[in-house]
Design a protein around this nucleic acid. Structure first.
Lengths: 216, 216
DNA sequence: CAAAAAAACAACCATATGGTTGGTTTTATG
DNA sequence: CATAAAACCAACCATATGGTTGTTTTTTTG
């Protein structure tokens, strides 16, 4: 058991190698999940020896966790999501839907990693990891939603959690279940034009349903 | 290669054995997916010899496909879904949401099999299989929705596919992403009382957003 | 009940898999 | 430029895996 635990490799070559392994691993894990991913395959595609993987990452599980954290962080780092202000409140639902769609479009591994994680019982991440993800993902939205409720833009009886969950559900589902839904409904959800149409209709429903002025 | 292809086993013992294997396999595949499921594990849990699995089902993949089809069919066979009438149109959104939640509550393997399938690229089922799933799942709803649109109950600019997709997305997501969402939002989505609250709020938003009378 | 057919099983096989070891090459630095 | 540390690699290991085979046990039926 060699306990090198190279947290910060000193050599540039190794830096590059590590990154190359990481990129390949991310693709592999997103594609096949923790159980389905093959160490040999990752090594071959990264054009390195298996042993390097264990030197850099310790084990398959640890490498998986690293990939997972990085994937969530990258998705949450979205520009628009992080720069919302009070001025956006009136159109917030539309902006969030559009931003969530954009996050999924730009990070094709995101929904996959989430899906694997949920199927796996969510045992890969620690409470601390979630704390930071929560900070990155939720903080930009929570305060603004409260403000919107106070100002009478959003219905007071719908709480923030439900709101985020429904918006995220719609966009996540569009990607995560594209294949089965396309077959079930005879649609071509891969097409960007279809996606835009669906987005417009999702917005029509969700914005309409959220507006406080439309309360009974 | 023994080509018995026992489509309809003559013996009662074998009938029971086959069913036992099938039940165990369904649990195993739902839990771990096609790649993660272990033939040895299924054999052990069903208290039979591995060879029986190959005699009855041919291969791992074929058995998986059988399980998948049965799982979709079972979910679609839901009583309330299959007995909707024109009289239900005014409260259709609420009924569908409630029914979809019920389907997931009663078939814990359903969302899992769907999730595995989407991650896997949806290569397990043939067009014919989808044809029949489509019939069972969609037929009861499509006509009624059209009727609702004609009668001015539903917004004319939101089409049926989007409507079903959004309702299904909300309920599916609640189950499929329960674990990660609970951690992200500091909630306890496993609790039935929380689920009921969320359902009520989903309904408030979606019903509000669908009603034609609330159009701008 | 005897013989044939079906069901069941123990043992086996080739290959794949996550992980390790001991030695060789490359790189930075005194 | 010598040398030690880091990076790298070929070969190896134990175990697990999907799938098969030859034989024995159980069930059905003339």
């Amino acid at each position: 058991m060699r306990k090198t635990v190279t947290i910060e490799p000193k050599q540039k070559r190794s830096q590059r190698t590590r990154e190359r392994i990481f990129r390949v691993a991310a693709r592999e894990f997103a594609a096949k999940g923790l159980a389905g991913a093959r160490i040999d395959e990752i090594a071959a595609r990264a054009r390195i020896n298996k042993e390097r993987i264990y030197a850099y990452f310790g084990s398959k599980e640890e490498m998986y966790r690293d990939v997972l954290v990085a994937c969530y962080a990258k998705a949450a780092s979205n520009q628009r999501l992080q720069t919302l202000t009070s001025a956006d409140i009136p159109h917030m639902t539309g902006i969030i839907i559009d931003t969530f769609f954009e996050i999924h479009r730009r990070n094709p591994e995101f929904w996959r990693m989430l899906a694997w994680e949920n199927l796996d019982g969510g045992k890969s991440l620690r409470a601390r990891d979630w704390e930071s993800i929560r900070g990155a993902y939720i903080r930009p939205l929570e305060a603004l939603y409260g403000e919107g409720q106070t100002n009478g833009v959003f219905r007071p009886e719908v709480d923030f959690n439900t709101y985020v969950m429904l918006l995220f559900a719609a966009t996540y589902f569009y990607y995560s279940n594209r294949i089965t839904m396309s077959r079930l409904l005879n649609l071509k959800l891969q097409r960007e034009e279809v996606r835009r149409q669906v987005e417009a209709q999702f917005l029509a429903i969700l914005d309409g349903g959220m507006a406080a002025s439309r309360q009974r």
